[in-house]
Amino acid sequence: MTRIIVVTSGKGGVGKTTCTANLGMALAKSDRRVVVIDADFGLRNLDLLLGLENRIVYTALDVLAKQCRLDQALVKDKRQPTLALLPAAQNRSKESITPEQMSILVDALKPHYDYILIDCPAGIEMGFRNAIATANEAIVVTTPEISAVRDADRVIGLLEANDVKRLHLIVNRLKPAMVQADMMMSVQDVQDILAIPLLGVIPDDERVIVSTNRGEPLVLEPKLSLAGLAFANIAQRLRGDKVPFLDLSAPHDDLFSRLRRMFRS
């Protein structure tokens, strides 16, 4: 059964697209057939994060307008052939597509993929409704900030009311030192309010921004950074494996020696 997962947040800029790109790539690396759909019409950038911008010929809208076939619009990743991107149109608004059209696209993709990840635009308007229309699971991304958590809470309510009931949480951009100094919400504080199962925590890390600019998801690094490892672990948990949570506050050396021990055993 194909899993159709929307990556959503309510608040903008908290890391939905970063998560979609990394999880898509990590799942593909483990030989799953993955398609990532950019549902952010008008503000697309999933293609950028994946480094696929220059290979886009057609978009989802061209498929719907019957200007091309679906497989012509799909951009296959050269690094990971089991990963494909269905790009959004850049020159159109979020109202240019309906939830019904979204279903048509997803239904057509379903037979060919194990995972369909949908990168949702910020907000709770039309673009959000399109993105969640066909999903049967959601990954809710938030940063440990009150405003982001508030919006995530709202979005969870809307997802539940729209029968998307399998929900998971990613807390992104955590700064352990700030949490320790009581200047930032802890993961526990966030979970206390949102009360959905935690999929993972990603530390705030400059390398995320660098990888964004390069169009190379962190999970492709030959030697994974902490953030890259966090994404890889999340992908594994998504697949149903039990992976212990990283201790983000531990000094790096510690962590890697511990991991090496884990791999040896």
């Binding site: 508030r150 919006d151 809470d153 709202r154 969870i156 309510g157 809307l158 009360a195």
Partner: peptide, 8 residues
Amino acid sequence: QNTVRSGT
């Protein structure tokens, strides 16, 4: 019987 979430 449910969580009454933000915005509700």
